[in-house]
């Protein structure tokens, strides 16, 4: 690592490292009931990950989240492309969409649990439903924001409908679709945890809630920290995926404005 990269690395990481170190040392040896030391939290986290159920539960939670997200991304993108492209459809769907999306997803959790029972299905459903909105709305915006020049080009060269969707609309809307997915990932994480607070017997959310109910504070904290780490890792991974998938977009907008030869 050369000096410049080291400098950038330090500039990026000094604050989080300082915060964690601060937490670690300030909480060390001062074991209050509600705020156990970071050392203890991490020890419990490690213990439950390696010898307890937490790792397996973590896998189940992630599986639900992945399934819910996948459904939301596929459905949100497909329906969003159609609604964005066809004016009549958009006009018909807008009032309904505005009503449905204003219902906070967390509010329907109890309803869904009652209706669908325990197990993975209701959780996946809740995550998919909540994540559907940001993907859908961003996709619609993305399609509507396609520059008129590009539309003219597609029309002038008589690009057939299926090809237009597949190679033009999806791609032109992709920056917005990705922005929607980024929001959806954050939403999915929230709903993944909340959906496991009710009618669950496995999962990270269940782990947190169950620990809380028996006042096992280090475990409650451990679950929370795990979710935090998960959220961070997911968004970092997604950022990389986005940079890679949208390389053309970032390059294109960077050179935007250089005119002439």
């Amino acid at each position: 690592m050369n000096a410049r990269r080291l400098k950038r690395f330090v500039a990026l990481w000094w604050l989080p490292v300082a915060l964690v170190a601060g937490w670690w040392f300030l909480s060390l040896g001062r074991d209050s009931f509600y705020f156990p030391s970071l050392q203890k939290i991490l020890a419990v986290l490690w213990r439950d990950l390696t010898t307890g159920n937490l790792l397996a539960w973590h896998g189940i939670s992630l599986g639900n989240m992945a399934a819910g997200l996948a459904i939301a991304i596929v459905a949100g993108t497909l329906i969003g492309l159609l609604i964005g492209e066809f004016e009549g459809l958009r006009r018909a769907a807008t009032p309904t969409l505005n009503f449905l999306r204003s219902i906070p997803p967390a509010a329907i959790v109890p309803l869904v649990i009652v209706a669908m029972g325990i197990g993975s299905a209701p959780k996946i459903f809740i995550i998919a439903l909540a994540c559907f909105w940001p993907v859908l709305l961003n996709t619609i915006d993305g399609v509507r924001g396609i520059p008129p020049q590009l539309r003219d080009t597609v029309k002038a060269f008589r690009i057939p409908l299926a090809l237009r969707f597949r190679r033009v609309l999806v791609m032109a809307a992709l920056p917005q679709i990705m922005a929607g997915i980024r929001i959806a990932i954050a939403v999915a994480l929230v709903l993944m945890v909340i959906s496991e607070f009710f009618g669950a017997s496995v999962g990270v959310g269940f782990y947190i809630n169950e620990a809380k109910q028996r006042f096992a504070m280090p475990e409650t904290w451990a679950g929370t920290v795990l979710i935090g780490i998960l959220g961070y890792v997911l968004s970092a991974l997604f950022l990389r995926l986005e940079r890679w998938l949208l390389a053309w977009y970032f390059q294109d907008s960077r050179t935007q404005g250089d005119e002439g030869a």
Binding site: P147, Q149, L150, D152, T153, R158, M171, L174, Y249
Partner: peptide
């Protein structure tokens, strides 16, 4: 009544008419 297959268009805004992902 619609764009014909024998007509080719070249727009002023080349940037907006080429697809940056291709």
């Amino acid at each position: 009544t619609e764009p014909l297959g024998e007509i080719g268009l070249v727009f002023q805004d080349y940037r907006g008419s080429l697809m940056p992902w291709m």
